[in-house]
Design a protein around this nucleic acid. Structure first.
Lengths: 386, 386
DNA sequence: GAAAAGGAATGAATCGTTTCAAATCGGGCA
DNA sequence: TGCCCGATTTGAAACGATTCATTCCTTTTC
């Protein structure tokens, strides 16, 4: 193995374990057995064996009803005994459909997207579509490259959570004739299909919650402003602050990091603690950032939630198991994937179809990271009723 | 959206949020714009525009050096101005390569596999390969179905973490001429390429650790015995017990669950607490199970690690952030994906190549879930002295 | 008993590339 | 001048399916 060019994970969670790798060569043959892999069985051989024409075999495969039962049986037997497996490339070339869907998302390591993929896969699998997975790591260049490759493969459609805040790239796809549905992004402004959650509302829920707890200076650890979700979530927080100001002093400080990852969240803690006025609560643009913030706060010896309340976003499955358990804005992830895939299928199969923007509502889940502990009320600001 | 047939997630973490979904129809056109999607540009149109033959265009694309610079420029300009995008299906049909790799794994929602995918994607992306992602949810039937689909697509190769303990399915793939590399499974016994970690050793590390802490009755929450990793990890635990028995009384009880998920782990707690003699420590076949066990123990009011020590397996990134933080056997996940992908590439490109089994060493990471309190207490900084 | 009808099966054209033997073109050399 | 040669370019034959206008049989109908 070419250790020299071993790529390192952008997620530095997993230390490299080079020392421990061993390697064993087998005695068995080399590339020889690949050469010996006899050419694949074609429809023609099946036709010969079954004593019918090419067209008939094709009909058995695609229009079984038009071929006589006895002939059909003969062909099916021939297919079995030759172990024929249809060549999708040839099919696609003539028939125009590839039974392939591209899924382009920001980070497959984020459990939020993982759940979306599960939902989409569930729907698509049943129609024998296969997913081409593309993780952009928030790089526009990589996204562009993947779009290109997917177009070369003539995918039947694309599910995409775009990197850039404008929707140009997605609109361009549609313009080039590729059915496209936005994931976790609203597309109604550009006439695109989409399955999304109201991010402004979600951030409002989070910020309102913090203000209701009595916090006055809150911080938002946010991702790059190129990502729409980050813009919207900031907007939601801003609206909440504006409302809160009617009743009390309220401020919002934004700390922008380079990516929506655990490490970046941890790195934001220094800035968070140095901010003036020092915030007593922080909301994060997603759960991974919040995980990092929690870790960083723990390392700095800052008590959560006593000294700093924390709220995340996404409510990924692990949020409830952290120490302390993380309050978060829940999004219906699996359903998002399902809805997007169904929308795309409609468009792909040419079903009567209007472009639609499906929108889910977020929901705040309050847990320990933003709940004053009953036993130890550190400060005299018990704003919570009861 | 056809809510009626909304599939439900096998992972029940995410409650359905049906009430909150809204839908907006756009005014823009329907399928019409798909019809209007003018036929794709072909190599022929490029040839016409550039005043050369088909073969020359093809050469510009595949053997740029054999065509004269001036001609090449003319063709490239024509490609630009027509926005030509090569059709992979046609390429594949003639040239035999699809630049596509199938990745078949047990559960894409498991961060362990996610990291592997990241590693594999990193390597393959650079060669312009695209991944076809297939998550089997430990179902042999689904695995079989996916293999079939991947073969129809004529993927250049497959990375697979097989469902069944025997390697028949993988061997069958190779027999059918599809280069295959095992993920997280040793293949040397069957002459298959593989990138794996020594699971027996890993489980020994975990069990040894527990016995060294003084535990005598330990439990293993294990997945189905159809999965090789589960078999091996049990074997490792068994060996450890045998050794421990030389010095003290030591016992191992196995609790088998249906799948390697959080929910199944939580469900195993009842059996765990009812076992006779009641174990004082439990090791789990993977971290997701351990997460569930931790949750179940917390719900049952059993203190970890005082009343029950817990050790997981995989050391997924979230393990260190749980409450309490989870001891686990670390596997080099990202590197596993990288190694497997590189191995597969060798085979696919026909590089001089012997089948090889790359083996990494596991490493025990001890954290709070298996550490007697006194050790961790002094380090914890407290906001409230007391 | 002949014609019409209709169900089955055929096979050539086609999809968009790659491949490769053959044609073409300019010189260089004897 | 004529021939040969290497560098370019050409064009037709694959690749493995699908499509569809035809042909071939049976039946049915009158």
């Amino acid at each position: 193995m070419a250790k020299g060019r071993l790529p390192t994970s952008p997620h530095d969670e997993t230390p490299v374990n080079r020392a421990g790798s061993a390697e064993r060569r087998h005695s068995s043959a080399t590339g020889a057995d690949r050469t010996s892999a006899k050419r694949r069985v074609t429809i023609r051989e099946v036709a010969n064996l079954a004593q019918v024409s090419l067209g008939t075999v094709s009909n058995v495969l695609n229009n079984p009803t038009v071929v006589a039962p006895t002939t059909r049986k003969r062909v099916l037997d021939a297919i079995d005994s030759t172990r024929f497996v249809r060549n999708t490339a040839a099919h696609q070339l003539r028939a125009g459909k590839s039974r392939t869907i591209g899924v382009v998302l920001l980070d497959i390591a984020n459990p939020f997207f993982t759940e979306i993929v599960r939902g989409a896969e569930h729907v698509l699998r049943e129609q024998d579509y296969v997913l081409m997975l593309c993780s952009t790591d928030e790089s526009a260049k990589r996204e562009q490259r993947y779009f290109r490759v997917l177009e070369e493969h003539r995918v039947d459609g694309i599910l995409v959570c775009p990197v850039d805040s404008d929707l140009e790239s997605a609109v361009a796809l549609v313009a080039r004739g590729i059915p496209t549905v936005l994931l976790d992004r609203d597309g109604s402004s550009h006439g695109l299909c989409s399955a999304a959650v109201d991010d402004i509302r979600g951030a409002e829920l989070a910020a309102d919650h913090l203000f209701e707890l009595g916090h006055q200076a809150i911080a938002l650890v946010n991702g790059p402003a190129t990502i729409r979700q980050c813009i919207d979530r900031k907007e939601g927080a801003r609206r909440s602050v504006k409302r809160a100001r009617c009743y009390r002093s309220a401020s919002l400080q934004e700390i922008v990091v380079g990516a929506l990852t655990i490490d970046q969240g941890e790195g934001a803690v220094a800035a968070l603690l140095a901010a003036e006025p020092r915030p007593s609560a922080v909301m994060c643009a997603n759960d991974l950032l919040a995980f990092g913030v929690l870790r960083g706060l723990a390392a700095a010896g800052v008590g959560v939630p006593e000294e700093m309340a924390v709220v995340g976003y996404d409510d990924v499955v692990f949020a409830s198991m952290l120490s302390p358990s993380l309050s978060s804005v829940r999004q219906p992830k699996y359903e998002l994937g399902v809805a997007a895939a169904e929308l795309l299928l409609e468009e792909v199969t040419g079903a009567p179809h209007e472009h639609r923007a499906i929108r889910f509502e977020p929901e705040l889940v309050v847990r320990a990271s933003s709940t004053p502990r009953p036993v130890s009320a550190p400060r005299a600001k018990r704003s919570r009723p009861g």
